[in-house]
Simulated scan of single mutants.
Amino acid sequence: MFFETDRLYLRPFEPDDAKTVQALTSDKDLARTTLHIPYPYPEGYADHWITSCSEKMKKGSSYSFAIILKGTMELVGCLTLNIALNHNRGELAYWIGKPYWDNGYATEASKKIIDYAFCELDLNRIWASVMDKNQASIEVMKKSGLLYEGKFPQHVLKWGHYEDVAYYGLVKAQYKKIKQQNEAAQV
């Protein structure tokens, strides 16, 4: 499975990516802004994580893609779509290594995978969660077309502090309507 956008390639992770994943996810600022990346990032954990991504992809329960810059072939981040088959929905999650922040890579990758989720996987709903303090990720969700659905106050405990978590989502009918409006505006 392979996708291409204007500036990016999205492909499954490979064992050779472990060193770069380890380096990028070991950044405290990255871990601070995410719900699930540990800090310090355990040595050798990237190898285990990449293996688990491959196994989940084979089962169709999760699709994790390395975000690769076309020009330099650098791995800059990850985009994952976790599938709940029994509910026909997918959870979107992503991270971008700190040296590559503020370039729109997460938005560009998210739009591509949202299209794939609705058009190819025929999912009915896509959703994502974010710590309310992570304004950059909130902007990615908005620019990717996800709509604000609500906030759970003090929903997670991160590094000894309770954090509010905001939820964004989109159902297929909304996606189709937005896509039709965008196409009509381009005519």
Rank of each mutant, 00 (worst) to 15 (best):
F3Q: 12
F3C: 08
E4M: 11
Y9I: 13
Y9T: 05
Y9V: 08
R11Q: 02
A18V: 07
A18E: 05
A18F: 05
T25Y: 04
T33L: 14
H36Y: 15
I37G: 10
P38A: 15
P40L: 13
P42D: 14
G44Y: 15
I50H: 09
C53V: 02
E55S: 08
K56V: 00
G60I: 09
S61T: 15
S64M: 01
A66I: 01
I68A: 04
I68S: 05
G71C: 00
G71S: 11
M73Y: 12
M73Q: 15
E74Y: 11
V76L: 04
C78A: 12
L79Q: 08
I83Y: 07
L85R: 13
N86V: 07
G90P: 05
L92Q: 03
A93S: 14
I96K: 02
I96H: 03
G97M: 04
G97E: 01
K98C: 01
K98G: 00
K98V: 14
G104Q: 04
G104Y: 00
A106R: 03
A106C: 05
T107I: 07
E108D: 01
E108M: 00
K111I: 02
I114N: 04
D115V: 00
Y116W: 14
Y116M: 03
Y116H: 14
F118A: 05
F118I: 05
F118W: 08
L121P: 06
A128V: 14
K133Q: 12
N134I: 15
A136M: 12
I138E: 15
V140I: 13
L146E: 06
L147K: 13
G150V: 14
E163R: 05
V165F: 01
L170D: 00
V171D: 05
A173D: 08
K176Y: 05
I178Q: 10
I178Y: 03
K179Q: 08
K179P: 00
E183R: 07
A184W: 03
V187N: 12
V187E: 08
